[in-house]
Amino acid sequence: MRRPARPLFLARAPYRLRRLRDAARLLPILGFLLLLLPLLWAGGDQSTLTSGEVLYYFGVWGVLILCAAAFAPGLKGGEAGEEEDD
């Protein structure tokens, strides 16, 4: 029960919107990887916490929030032709 095929190519503005959605989908994956990254370098014999680690985690956190804040206004007006696709 699908609607007629969606257009294969898009004008510039809808194209950018699609890519913004892609970015919004990728962001949590990137975030998860970044949050797991210190496990690799701290996996050794380091036994105590360093302030550098703290700064790193809060830095990643802050970047994620900033990115989400930058994406949010563009994603908000989900136009009529909604999609699960591209």
């Binding site: 989908r25 975030g31 949050l35 929030i65 989400a68």
Partner: peptide, 24 residues
């Protein structure tokens, strides 16, 4: 346990930052 408490907030952060996936 040191920084481990942060995990409890990282999870929701990822879910909300990735709201386009599921929450929407």
């Amino acid at each position: 346990s040191g920084l481990e408490f942060l995990t409890i907030y990282f999870g929701p952060t990822l879910v909300f930052v990735g709201w386009w996936w599921l929450l929407r």
